[in-house]
Nucleic acid binder design. Sequence first.
RNA 1: GGUCCCAUCGUCUAGCGGUUAGGACACCGGCCUUUCACGUCGGUAACAGGGGUUCAAGUCCCCUUGGGAUCACCA
Length: 466
Amino acid sequence: MSEVRLRFAPSPTGYLHIGGARTALFNWLLSRKEKGTFILRIEDTDVARSTQESVDAILEGMTWLGLDWDEGPFYQSESFPLYKEFVQKLLNEGKAYKCYCTPEELEAKRELAMREGRKPKYDGTCRNRTEDIPGKPFAVRFRAPQTGETAFHDLIKGPISFANEELDDLIIQRSDGTPTYNFTVVIDDATMGITTVIRGDDHVNNTPRQIMLYEALGYPVPKFAHVPMILGADKTRLSKRHGATSVMAYRDMGFLPEAMVNYLVRLGWSHGDDEIFSREELIEKFSIEAVGRSAGVFNPDKLLWLNHHYIMNGDPQRLAELLVPFLQERGIDPGKGPDRVAAVKTLQERSKTMVEMADGAAFYYRSEFAYDEEAAAKFLKPEVVPLYKALLAKLDGLPDFGHDAIEAAFKEFCAEQGIKMGQIGPPVRVALCGGTTSPSIYEVLEVLGRDETRRRIERTIAFVAK
RNA sequence: GGUCCCAUCGUCUAGCGGUUAGGACACCGGCCUUUCACGUCGGUAACAGGGGUUCAAGUCCCCUUGGGAUCACCA
Protein backbone atom coordinates (compact mmCIF):
# COMPACT_ATOMS: atom_id res chain seq x y z
CA MET A 1 0.00 0.00 0.00
CA SER A 2 2.76 2.42 0.84
CA GLU A 3 5.07 1.11 -1.84
CA VAL A 4 6.19 3.49 -4.53
CA ARG A 5 4.92 3.08 -8.06
CA LEU A 6 6.76 4.82 -10.87
CA ARG A 7 6.38 4.87 -14.58
CA PHE A 8 8.15 5.82 -17.76
CA ALA A 9 5.65 6.94 -20.39
CA PRO A 10 7.23 7.64 -23.76
CA SER A 11 5.23 8.43 -26.83
CA PRO A 12 6.17 6.09 -29.68
CA THR A 13 7.02 8.67 -32.29
CA GLY A 14 10.71 7.86 -32.59
CA TYR A 15 13.57 5.95 -31.02
CA LEU A 16 14.60 6.10 -27.36
CA HIS A 17 16.75 9.20 -27.12
CA ILE A 18 19.33 10.29 -24.57
CA GLY A 19 16.92 12.48 -22.63
CA GLY A 20 14.19 9.89 -22.46
CA ALA A 21 16.68 7.26 -21.42
CA ARG A 22 17.81 9.37 -18.49
CA THR A 23 14.24 9.97 -17.39
CA ALA A 24 13.59 6.24 -17.62
CA LEU A 25 16.78 5.57 -15.69
CA PHE A 26 15.85 7.90 -12.84
CA ASN A 27 12.44 6.27 -12.59
CA TRP A 28 13.96 2.82 -12.67
CA LEU A 29 16.61 3.66 -10.08
CA LEU A 30 14.12 5.09 -7.64
CA SER A 31 11.80 2.12 -8.04
CA ARG A 32 14.67 -0.31 -7.39
CA LYS A 33 15.99 1.70 -4.46
CA GLU A 34 12.58 1.86 -2.82
CA LYS A 35 11.75 -1.68 -3.82
CA GLY A 36 8.69 -0.35 -5.57
CA THR A 37 7.16 -0.98 -8.96
CA PHE A 38 8.33 0.33 -12.31
CA ILE A 39 5.71 0.54 -15.02
CA LEU A 40 6.17 1.09 -18.73
CA ARG A 41 3.35 2.84 -20.49
CA ILE A 42 3.21 3.75 -24.15
CA GLU A 43 1.45 7.05 -24.78
CA ASP A 44 0.04 6.42 -28.20
CA THR A 45 -3.11 8.51 -28.17
CA ASP A 46 -1.79 10.35 -31.19
CA VAL A 47 -2.63 7.52 -33.53
CA ALA A 48 -1.32 9.34 -36.56
CA ARG A 49 2.23 9.75 -35.24
CA SER A 50 2.61 6.54 -33.27
CA THR A 51 4.28 3.53 -34.86
CA GLN A 52 5.03 -0.03 -33.89
CA GLU A 53 8.63 0.45 -35.03
CA SER A 54 9.02 3.19 -32.45
CA VAL A 55 7.57 1.00 -29.74
CA ASP A 56 10.06 -1.73 -30.64
CA ALA A 57 12.93 0.72 -30.73
CA ILE A 58 12.06 2.06 -27.29
CA LEU A 59 11.77 -1.43 -25.83
CA GLU A 60 15.09 -2.38 -27.38
CA GLY A 61 16.75 0.70 -25.90
CA MET A 62 15.36 0.01 -22.43
CA THR A 63 16.48 -3.59 -22.62
CA TRP A 64 19.97 -2.66 -23.78
CA LEU A 65 20.34 -0.29 -20.84
CA GLY A 66 19.09 -2.99 -18.50
CA LEU A 67 16.01 -1.06 -17.40
CA ASP A 68 13.50 -3.80 -16.80
CA TRP A 69 9.90 -2.99 -15.97
CA ASP A 70 7.55 -4.79 -13.61
CA GLU A 71 4.25 -3.98 -15.31
CA GLY A 72 3.33 -3.22 -18.89
CA PRO A 73 3.97 -2.17 -21.45
CA PHE A 74 0.49 -0.70 -21.32
CA TYR A 75 -0.91 1.13 -24.30
CA GLN A 76 -3.11 4.16 -23.86
CA SER A 77 -4.86 3.36 -27.10
CA GLU A 78 -6.35 0.36 -25.31
CA SER A 79 -7.96 2.53 -22.65
CA PHE A 80 -10.17 4.74 -24.75
CA PRO A 81 -13.36 3.42 -23.15
CA LEU A 82 -11.92 4.22 -19.73
CA TYR A 83 -11.20 7.82 -20.70
CA LYS A 84 -14.70 8.17 -22.14
CA GLU A 85 -16.14 7.00 -18.88
CA PHE A 86 -14.23 9.59 -16.88
CA VAL A 87 -15.16 12.36 -19.29
CA GLN A 88 -18.79 11.44 -18.87
CA LYS A 89 -18.37 11.41 -15.10
CA LEU A 90 -16.98 14.95 -15.09
CA LEU A 91 -19.71 16.04 -17.47
CA ASN A 92 -22.40 14.59 -15.20
CA GLU A 93 -20.92 16.29 -12.18
CA GLY A 94 -20.75 19.63 -13.97
CA LYS A 95 -16.97 19.63 -13.69
CA ALA A 96 -16.66 19.62 -17.45
CA TYR A 97 -18.77 21.10 -20.20
CA LYS A 98 -19.36 20.82 -23.90
CA CYS A 99 -17.65 23.46 -26.00
CA TYR A 100 -19.05 24.13 -29.44
CA CYS A 101 -16.42 26.62 -30.49
CA THR A 102 -14.64 25.46 -33.62
CA PRO A 103 -10.86 25.34 -33.89
CA GLU A 104 -11.08 28.14 -36.45
CA GLU A 105 -13.05 30.40 -34.12
CA LEU A 106 -10.61 29.65 -31.31
CA GLU A 107 -7.65 30.40 -33.50
CA ALA A 108 -9.20 33.72 -34.52
CA LYS A 109 -9.86 34.66 -30.90
CA ARG A 110 -6.32 33.77 -29.95
CA GLU A 111 -4.93 35.98 -32.65
CA LEU A 112 -7.18 38.85 -31.71
CA ALA A 113 -6.21 38.54 -28.06
CA MET A 114 -2.54 38.51 -28.96
CA ARG A 115 -2.96 41.57 -31.14
CA GLU A 116 -4.75 43.45 -28.39
CA GLY A 117 -2.08 42.42 -25.94
CA ARG A 118 -4.38 40.18 -23.91
CA LYS A 119 -3.61 36.66 -22.77
CA PRO A 120 -4.44 34.09 -25.43
CA LYS A 121 -6.52 31.93 -23.14
CA TYR A 122 -9.96 30.49 -23.74
CA ASP A 123 -12.59 33.19 -23.24
CA GLY A 124 -15.16 30.90 -21.68
CA THR A 125 -17.82 31.29 -24.34
CA CYS A 126 -19.34 27.86 -23.65
CA ARG A 127 -18.52 27.67 -19.97
CA ASN A 128 -21.94 28.85 -18.89
CA ARG A 129 -24.00 27.46 -21.73
CA THR A 130 -27.02 25.68 -20.31
CA GLU A 131 -28.49 24.08 -23.40
CA ASP A 132 -26.89 21.46 -25.62
CA ILE A 133 -26.83 22.14 -29.32
CA PRO A 134 -28.17 18.96 -30.89
CA GLY A 135 -26.20 17.67 -33.85
CA LYS A 136 -23.34 20.12 -33.54
CA PRO A 137 -19.89 18.64 -32.86
CA PHE A 138 -18.34 19.60 -29.57
CA ALA A 139 -15.17 19.20 -27.58
CA VAL A 140 -15.26 18.70 -23.83
CA ARG A 141 -13.56 21.20 -21.59
CA PHE A 142 -12.60 20.89 -17.98
CA ARG A 143 -14.18 23.55 -15.78
CA ALA A 144 -11.09 24.81 -14.00
CA PRO A 145 -11.11 26.89 -10.83
CA GLN A 146 -10.60 30.56 -11.75
CA THR A 147 -9.38 31.91 -8.46
CA GLY A 148 -6.84 30.91 -5.88
CA GLU A 149 -3.64 29.14 -6.74
CA THR A 150 -2.37 25.67 -7.41
CA ALA A 151 0.93 24.76 -5.82
CA PHE A 152 3.05 21.67 -5.43
CA HIS A 153 6.39 20.75 -4.02
CA ASP A 154 8.61 19.47 -6.79
CA LEU A 155 11.07 16.86 -5.54
CA ILE A 156 13.79 18.41 -7.66
CA LYS A 157 12.86 22.05 -8.06
CA GLY A 158 11.20 22.77 -4.75
CA PRO A 159 7.98 24.73 -4.26
CA ILE A 160 6.24 25.90 -7.44
CA SER A 161 2.93 27.69 -7.64
CA PHE A 162 0.63 29.07 -10.27
CA ALA A 163 -2.22 31.54 -10.00
CA ASN A 164 -5.37 29.78 -11.20
CA GLU A 165 -6.45 32.79 -13.20
CA GLU A 166 -3.51 32.11 -15.50
CA LEU A 167 -4.93 28.75 -16.43
CA ASP A 168 -7.87 28.27 -18.77
CA ASP A 169 -10.34 25.49 -19.33
CA LEU A 170 -8.41 22.83 -21.16
CA ILE A 171 -9.95 20.49 -23.63
CA ILE A 172 -10.04 16.94 -22.33
CA GLN A 173 -11.84 15.36 -25.25
CA ARG A 174 -11.59 16.36 -28.87
CA SER A 175 -14.61 16.78 -31.09
CA ASP A 176 -13.76 13.44 -32.68
CA GLY A 177 -14.22 11.80 -29.30
CA THR A 178 -10.57 11.08 -28.54
CA PRO A 179 -9.08 12.21 -25.24
CA THR A 180 -6.20 14.66 -24.98
CA TYR A 181 -2.84 14.12 -23.37
CA ASN A 182 -3.27 16.12 -20.17
CA PHE A 183 -6.37 14.13 -19.42
CA THR A 184 -5.09 10.68 -20.26
CA VAL A 185 -1.92 11.02 -18.19
CA VAL A 186 -3.96 11.91 -15.18
CA ILE A 187 -6.42 9.08 -15.66
CA ASP A 188 -3.62 6.60 -16.24
CA ASP A 189 -1.41 7.77 -13.42
CA ALA A 190 -4.39 7.87 -11.09
CA THR A 191 -5.83 4.49 -11.99
CA MET A 192 -2.41 2.84 -12.06
CA GLY A 193 -1.73 4.19 -8.61
CA ILE A 194 1.40 6.07 -9.60
CA THR A 195 2.86 7.64 -6.46
CA THR A 196 5.68 9.66 -7.98
CA VAL A 197 5.83 11.16 -11.43
CA ILE A 198 9.37 11.70 -12.71
CA ARG A 199 9.39 13.36 -16.11
CA GLY A 200 11.06 16.05 -18.20
CA ASP A 201 10.74 19.60 -16.93
CA ASP A 202 8.98 20.67 -20.10
CA HIS A 203 5.95 19.36 -18.21
CA VAL A 204 6.00 21.71 -15.24
CA ASN A 205 3.54 24.02 -16.90
CA ASN A 206 1.14 21.13 -17.34
CA THR A 207 1.35 20.11 -13.73
CA PRO A 208 -1.13 22.56 -12.17
CA ARG A 209 -3.84 21.61 -14.68
CA GLN A 210 -3.21 17.98 -13.95
CA ILE A 211 -3.40 18.58 -10.22
CA MET A 212 -6.79 20.22 -10.73
CA LEU A 213 -7.91 17.16 -12.61
CA TYR A 214 -6.78 14.82 -9.83
CA GLU A 215 -8.71 16.90 -7.37
CA ALA A 216 -11.82 17.04 -9.51
CA LEU A 217 -11.67 13.29 -9.96
CA GLY A 218 -11.13 12.70 -6.26
CA TYR A 219 -7.79 10.97 -6.60
CA PRO A 220 -4.74 11.64 -4.45
CA VAL A 221 -2.19 13.88 -6.14
CA PRO A 222 1.13 12.12 -6.72
CA LYS A 223 4.52 13.64 -5.99
CA PHE A 224 6.23 15.27 -8.93
CA ALA A 225 9.88 15.44 -9.90
CA HIS A 226 10.78 17.38 -13.01
CA VAL A 227 14.20 16.60 -14.39
CA PRO A 228 16.02 19.33 -16.30
CA MET A 229 16.65 18.78 -19.94
CA ILE A 230 19.85 17.87 -21.71
CA LEU A 231 21.62 20.41 -23.87
CA GLY A 232 24.13 20.20 -26.69
CA ALA A 233 27.56 21.83 -26.58
CA ASP A 234 26.07 25.13 -27.76
CA LYS A 235 23.57 25.03 -24.89
CA THR A 236 20.58 24.54 -27.13
CA ARG A 237 18.30 21.56 -26.79
CA LEU A 238 20.15 18.35 -27.65
CA SER A 239 19.39 17.31 -31.22
CA LYS A 240 20.90 15.39 -34.10
CA ARG A 241 22.94 18.46 -34.91
CA HIS A 242 24.99 17.62 -31.84
CA GLY A 243 25.61 14.05 -32.92
CA ALA A 244 23.71 10.87 -32.22
CA THR A 245 20.75 11.17 -29.85
CA SER A 246 19.49 7.61 -30.08
CA VAL A 247 20.83 5.37 -27.35
CA MET A 248 21.03 2.44 -29.77
CA ALA A 249 23.31 4.49 -32.00
CA TYR A 250 25.74 4.54 -29.10
CA ARG A 251 25.74 0.77 -28.93
CA ASP A 252 26.58 0.74 -32.62
CA MET A 253 29.37 3.22 -32.02
CA GLY A 254 30.89 0.76 -29.60
CA PHE A 255 29.66 2.01 -26.24
CA LEU A 256 28.88 -0.28 -23.33
CA PRO A 257 25.48 0.07 -21.64
CA GLU A 258 27.07 0.40 -18.20
CA ALA A 259 29.09 3.39 -19.46
CA MET A 260 25.93 4.97 -20.83
CA VAL A 261 24.05 4.41 -17.58
CA ASN A 262 26.93 5.76 -15.51
CA TYR A 263 27.24 8.81 -17.74
CA LEU A 264 23.54 9.56 -17.87
CA VAL A 265 23.03 9.30 -14.14
CA ARG A 266 25.94 11.64 -13.43
CA LEU A 267 24.52 14.17 -15.83
CA GLY A 268 22.42 16.02 -13.29
CA TRP A 269 22.84 13.77 -10.32
CA SER A 270 25.84 13.47 -8.05
CA HIS A 271 26.98 11.77 -4.90
CA GLY A 272 29.84 13.79 -3.43
CA ASP A 273 32.93 13.43 -5.56
CA ASP A 274 32.12 9.93 -6.81
CA GLU A 275 32.27 9.32 -10.55
CA ILE A 276 32.17 5.58 -11.09
CA PHE A 277 29.10 3.69 -9.96
CA SER A 278 28.19 0.07 -10.38
CA ARG A 279 24.53 -0.70 -10.89
CA GLU A 280 24.29 -1.86 -7.28
CA GLU A 281 25.90 1.32 -5.98
CA LEU A 282 23.52 3.42 -8.01
CA ILE A 283 20.51 1.66 -6.59
CA GLU A 284 21.89 2.11 -3.12
CA LYS A 285 23.00 5.73 -3.44
CA PHE A 286 20.54 7.31 -5.84
CA SER A 287 18.06 9.85 -4.58
CA ILE A 288 15.81 12.04 -6.63
CA GLU A 289 16.36 14.98 -4.27
CA ALA A 290 20.04 15.01 -5.19
CA VAL A 291 19.27 15.65 -8.86
CA GLY A 292 20.32 19.16 -9.84
CA ARG A 293 17.83 21.84 -10.88
CA SER A 294 19.59 23.19 -13.93
CA ALA A 295 19.95 21.86 -17.45
CA GLY A 296 23.15 20.03 -18.33
CA VAL A 297 25.33 19.81 -21.42
CA PHE A 298 25.86 16.39 -22.94
CA ASN A 299 29.61 15.79 -22.96
CA PRO A 300 30.72 13.05 -25.38
CA ASP A 301 34.29 13.22 -24.07
CA LYS A 302 33.27 12.18 -20.62
CA LEU A 303 31.09 9.40 -21.97
CA LEU A 304 34.12 8.22 -23.89
CA TRP A 305 36.25 8.29 -20.76
CA LEU A 306 33.70 6.21 -18.88
CA ASN A 307 33.41 3.79 -21.76
CA HIS A 308 37.17 3.41 -21.76
CA HIS A 309 37.06 2.76 -18.04
CA TYR A 310 34.47 0.03 -18.40
CA ILE A 311 36.24 -1.57 -21.35
CA MET A 312 39.54 -1.53 -19.49
CA ASN A 313 38.02 -3.14 -16.44
CA GLY A 314 35.50 -5.33 -18.22
CA ASP A 315 35.37 -9.10 -18.45
CA PRO A 316 37.46 -10.13 -21.51
CA GLN A 317 35.15 -13.03 -22.21
CA ARG A 318 32.13 -10.75 -22.48
CA LEU A 319 34.00 -8.12 -24.48
CA ALA A 320 35.15 -10.80 -26.89
CA GLU A 321 31.49 -11.64 -27.50
CA LEU A 322 30.52 -8.01 -27.97
CA LEU A 323 33.39 -7.57 -30.38
CA VAL A 324 32.11 -10.14 -32.88
CA PRO A 325 29.73 -7.92 -34.87
CA PHE A 326 32.30 -5.15 -35.06
CA LEU A 327 34.85 -7.58 -36.46
CA GLN A 328 32.35 -8.92 -38.97
CA GLU A 329 31.59 -5.38 -40.07
CA ARG A 330 35.22 -5.22 -41.10
CA GLY A 331 34.98 -8.36 -43.13
CA ILE A 332 36.74 -10.46 -40.54
CA ASP A 333 35.71 -13.99 -39.65
CA PRO A 334 36.19 -14.06 -35.86
CA GLY A 335 36.17 -17.85 -35.96
CA LYS A 336 39.54 -17.91 -37.66
CA GLY A 337 42.78 -16.51 -36.36
CA PRO A 338 44.05 -16.13 -32.81
CA ASP A 339 42.04 -16.60 -29.66
CA ARG A 340 39.67 -13.68 -29.42
CA VAL A 341 39.75 -13.40 -25.63
CA ALA A 342 43.54 -13.25 -25.67
CA ALA A 343 43.42 -10.59 -28.35
CA VAL A 344 40.87 -8.56 -26.38
CA LYS A 345 43.08 -8.58 -23.30
CA THR A 346 45.86 -6.86 -25.24
CA LEU A 347 43.50 -4.13 -26.39
CA GLN A 348 41.37 -3.27 -23.37
CA GLU A 349 43.50 -0.47 -22.01
CA ARG A 350 43.94 1.07 -25.43
CA SER A 351 40.35 1.07 -26.65
CA LYS A 352 37.86 3.80 -25.89
CA THR A 353 35.11 2.05 -27.81
CA MET A 354 34.44 -1.38 -29.26
CA VAL A 355 34.92 0.18 -32.66
CA GLU A 356 38.42 1.19 -31.69
CA MET A 357 39.01 -2.26 -30.31
CA ALA A 358 37.90 -3.87 -33.55
CA ASP A 359 40.18 -1.57 -35.51
CA GLY A 360 43.03 -2.41 -33.18
CA ALA A 361 42.33 -6.12 -33.38
CA ALA A 362 42.05 -6.33 -37.14
CA PHE A 363 45.74 -7.03 -37.73
CA TYR A 364 45.52 -10.21 -35.65
CA TYR A 365 43.07 -11.64 -38.16
CA ARG A 366 44.56 -10.36 -41.38
CA SER A 367 47.76 -12.00 -42.55
CA GLU A 368 48.24 -10.28 -45.90
CA PHE A 369 48.12 -6.71 -44.72
CA ALA A 370 50.06 -3.87 -46.33
CA TYR A 371 52.82 -2.18 -44.36
CA ASP A 372 52.34 1.39 -43.32
CA GLU A 373 54.45 3.34 -45.79
CA GLU A 374 56.17 5.60 -43.34
CA ALA A 375 56.86 2.76 -40.95
CA ALA A 376 58.25 0.57 -43.70
CA ALA A 377 60.56 3.31 -44.92
CA LYS A 378 61.86 3.87 -41.44
CA PHE A 379 62.19 0.35 -40.07
CA LEU A 380 62.13 -2.21 -42.87
CA LYS A 381 65.69 -1.75 -44.09
CA PRO A 382 68.11 -4.40 -45.39
CA GLU A 383 70.27 -4.30 -42.26
CA VAL A 384 67.39 -5.58 -40.19
CA VAL A 385 67.19 -8.88 -42.10
CA PRO A 386 70.02 -10.60 -40.23
CA LEU A 387 68.43 -9.53 -36.96
CA TYR A 388 65.11 -10.99 -38.02
CA LYS A 389 66.82 -14.28 -38.88
CA ALA A 390 68.75 -14.42 -35.65
CA LEU A 391 65.62 -13.59 -33.69
CA LEU A 392 63.69 -16.32 -35.45
CA ALA A 393 66.38 -18.81 -34.46
CA LYS A 394 66.27 -17.57 -30.88
CA LEU A 395 62.48 -17.86 -30.77
CA ASP A 396 62.63 -21.39 -32.17
CA GLY A 397 64.66 -22.43 -29.18
CA LEU A 398 62.04 -21.26 -26.70
CA PRO A 399 60.40 -24.14 -24.88
CA ASP A 400 57.59 -21.89 -23.77
CA PHE A 401 56.01 -19.20 -26.00
CA GLY A 402 54.36 -17.24 -23.19
CA HIS A 403 54.64 -13.51 -22.58
CA ASP A 404 57.32 -13.69 -19.88
CA ALA A 405 59.50 -16.17 -21.77
CA ILE A 406 59.25 -14.01 -24.88
CA GLU A 407 60.19 -10.91 -22.98
CA ALA A 408 63.19 -12.66 -21.44
CA ALA A 409 64.22 -13.90 -24.88
CA PHE A 410 64.13 -10.37 -26.30
CA LYS A 411 66.25 -9.06 -23.43
CA GLU A 412 68.76 -11.83 -23.93
CA PHE A 413 68.71 -11.29 -27.66
CA CYS A 414 69.55 -7.63 -27.26
CA ALA A 415 72.43 -8.43 -24.94
CA GLU A 416 73.79 -11.09 -27.30
CA GLN A 417 73.55 -8.84 -30.32
CA GLY A 418 74.79 -5.81 -28.48
CA ILE A 419 71.77 -3.79 -29.55
CA LYS A 420 69.04 -1.83 -27.82
CA MET A 421 65.40 -2.76 -27.69
CA GLY A 422 64.69 0.22 -29.91
CA GLN A 423 66.60 -1.44 -32.74
CA ILE A 424 64.66 -4.68 -32.78
CA GLY A 425 61.29 -3.74 -31.27
CA PRO A 426 59.95 -1.41 -33.95
CA PRO A 427 60.97 -3.60 -36.92
CA VAL A 428 59.30 -6.59 -35.29
CA ARG A 429 56.20 -4.55 -34.59
CA VAL A 430 55.92 -3.46 -38.21
CA ALA A 431 56.48 -7.02 -39.40
CA LEU A 432 53.78 -8.37 -37.13
CA CYS A 433 51.23 -5.56 -37.17
CA GLY A 434 51.96 -3.56 -40.28
CA GLY A 435 52.36 -0.28 -38.41
CA THR A 436 53.95 1.43 -35.45
CA THR A 437 50.96 1.34 -33.14
CA SER A 438 50.02 -1.89 -31.42
CA PRO A 439 49.90 -3.63 -28.07
CA SER A 440 53.20 -4.63 -26.48
CA ILE A 441 55.08 -6.83 -28.95
CA TYR A 442 55.54 -9.55 -26.30
CA GLU A 443 51.79 -9.77 -26.06
CA VAL A 444 51.40 -9.72 -29.81
CA LEU A 445 53.85 -12.57 -30.24
CA GLU A 446 52.11 -14.60 -27.59
CA VAL A 447 48.66 -14.05 -29.09
CA LEU A 448 49.83 -14.71 -32.64
CA GLY A 449 51.75 -17.83 -31.63
CA ARG A 450 55.08 -19.13 -32.80
CA ASP A 451 54.01 -20.24 -36.27
CA GLU A 452 52.21 -17.10 -37.29
CA THR A 453 54.99 -14.97 -35.84
CA ARG A 454 57.52 -16.83 -37.99
CA ARG A 455 55.26 -16.56 -41.04
CA ARG A 456 54.91 -12.81 -40.70
CA ILE A 457 58.58 -12.17 -40.09
CA GLU A 458 59.58 -14.30 -43.05
CA ARG A 459 57.05 -12.44 -45.14
CA THR A 460 58.71 -9.20 -44.08
CA ILE A 461 62.16 -10.55 -44.89
CA ALA A 462 60.90 -11.31 -48.37
CA PHE A 463 59.38 -7.84 -48.59
CA VAL A 464 62.65 -6.16 -47.62
CA ALA A 465 64.61 -8.29 -50.10
CA LYS A 466 62.59 -6.90 -52.99
C1' G B 1 4.53 39.20 -24.73
C1' G B 2 2.16 36.25 -20.12
C1' U B 3 3.42 32.38 -16.80
C1' C B 4 7.03 29.08 -14.80
C1' C B 5 12.04 27.48 -14.13
C1' C B 6 17.42 28.04 -14.03
C1' A B 7 22.61 30.50 -12.93
C1' U B 8 30.21 27.67 -9.10
C1' C B 9 36.30 26.26 -13.77
C1' G B 10 35.19 25.23 -21.26
C1' U B 11 31.90 20.79 -19.50
C1' C B 12 29.64 17.52 -15.35
C1' U B 13 29.61 18.90 -10.43
C1' A B 14 31.00 19.23 -4.49
C1' G B 15 29.64 23.12 -1.30
C1' C B 16 24.04 23.20 2.48
C1' G B 17 27.00 31.18 6.88
C1' G B 18 33.35 30.99 8.59
C1' U B 19 36.95 26.49 2.78
C1' U B 20 43.98 28.26 0.39
C1' A B 21 36.25 27.30 -3.26
C1' G B 22 37.18 20.46 -3.71
C1' G B 23 36.70 16.36 -7.42
C1' A B 24 36.00 14.51 -12.52
C1' C B 25 36.27 15.10 -18.10
C1' A B 26 38.99 17.93 -21.54
C1' C B 27 43.52 20.72 -22.10
C1' C B 28 49.00 21.77 -21.01
C1' G B 29 53.71 20.05 -18.84
C1' G B 30 57.10 16.09 -16.14
C1' C B 31 57.94 10.88 -15.09
C1' C B 32 57.41 5.70 -16.81
C1' U B 33 58.32 3.33 -21.70
C1' U B 34 59.96 -1.05 -27.71
C1' U B 35 55.05 2.13 -30.29
C1' C B 36 50.17 3.42 -28.77
C1' A B 37 48.03 3.30 -24.42
C1' C B 38 47.82 2.52 -19.08
C1' G B 39 49.73 4.48 -14.66
C1' U B 40 51.73 8.51 -11.96
C1' C B 41 53.16 13.70 -10.48
C1' G B 42 52.06 18.71 -11.36
C1' G B 43 49.61 23.00 -13.87
C1' U B 44 45.93 26.55 -16.28
C1' A B 45 40.78 27.44 -15.13
C1' A B 46 34.77 29.22 -11.75
C1' C B 47 31.14 31.58 -7.48
C1' A B 48 27.01 36.52 -13.93
C1' G B 49 26.24 41.86 -11.86
C1' G B 50 24.15 45.03 -8.05
C1' G B 51 21.81 45.81 -3.55
C1' G B 52 20.53 44.09 1.21
C1' U B 53 20.47 40.53 6.03
C1' U B 54 24.71 39.13 9.17
C1' C B 55 30.41 39.88 13.22
C1' A B 56 30.86 36.82 8.67
C1' A B 57 27.80 35.28 2.20
C1' G B 58 29.32 30.83 -3.31
C1' U B 59 25.80 29.61 0.57
C1' C B 60 19.77 33.59 2.97
C1' C B 61 16.42 37.75 0.65
C1' C B 62 15.42 41.35 -3.41
C1' C B 63 16.49 43.46 -8.13
C1' U B 64 19.08 43.40 -12.84
C1' U B 65 21.20 40.63 -16.68
C1' G B 66 21.53 36.24 -19.27
C1' G B 67 19.60 31.42 -20.56
C1' G B 68 15.55 27.95 -21.02
C1' A B 69 10.50 25.80 -20.86
C1' U B 70 5.55 26.52 -21.95
C1' C B 71 1.29 29.08 -23.64
C1' A B 72 -2.88 23.51 -29.35
C1' C B 73 -9.09 19.80 -30.41
C1' C B 74 0.63 17.39 -30.01
C1' A B 75 2.53 14.41 -26.41
